[in-house]
Amino acid sequence: MFKNIRFFKRDNTVEKVVDLNHQRVFILPTNKGLSFLVLIAILFLIAFVYNNNLCYLLAFLLSSIFLISILHSYQSIFGLRLELIGCNKVFAGEMAEVNLLLSNPGNIDRVNLNIGFSKSNKLSLGKQKQKKLTFFLFVEKRGWHRMNKIVISSTYPFGFFTVWSPIRFSKKYLAYPALASDNCPLPMMDIEESVEEELMNSSIAGGDDFYGLKTYQDGDAIKQIDWKSFAKGQGLYIKQFQKNATASNQQLWLDYDFTTASDLEEKLSQLCRWVVDAEKQGLDYGFSLPGFSLQPSHGLNHYQQCLEALALYRPVVID
């Protein structure tokens, strides 16, 4: 029976942009509004008992203003446009940052708006103005998250009515596992040192291990930047080295099995920390989860692939 009423419809999510039109704006009287009705009733009673036309007039005026205030309340959020700019990826236990753009295309100032996910923030917006809003959502668990519904509401002008519009964006955001604390060193630290040594040697010797130059990309290790060419004004390049076979078994492997924690989530957290640390230090690292592995590499792409795998990892349960 209620299926066709939009209020009860489940799927009213929006992709990116939403205009607050009559289908999205709801209105109900508040307690103050209801008690104002009681006041009007009292005024009518006085007018009736004393048969006084001016008392009637005042009661009529208050009733009319009450009726008109329905429209003005509705107007206070009607026509606003909310646009989802995006939200960053986040580690569980941290705050996800959601960026929204609220614009007021109409010709009236919007005052006294409340907007927010769970608790609302006051805000006002001049006519034909827009404002970028940033919300921080606390994320508890890794994996995909649906965004909570965001509510824009207002009680302007008298507080007799509350108008609101609940908005749920269909876009999901990904949370990586919580980062383990700093004090878990990368596995096989010795290898790391040897690699570093090797790097030094190679750069000093300029031996055949040097493979070539590559343009700098985000995420490349600062240590590998070819400062000489940068100084010549040729731009940022990084030195690439040919890895010989003997070095490969000494490579850094971030393996699920190396983790020391006992619990699955803690293990993932530890892996997560390793990935972050290794990437920060500009190392090549291989990555391995049960049923998933990546050859050693580095860079933003590789880094994100690892983290996504961690975020979405589901242990295979064998009955």
């Binding site: 509705y74 109409g106 010709n107």
Partner: peptide, 10 residues
Amino acid sequence: ILRNQKTNID
């Protein structure tokens, strides 16, 4: 009251 609220951008 609500007429002018149609988004100008539209």
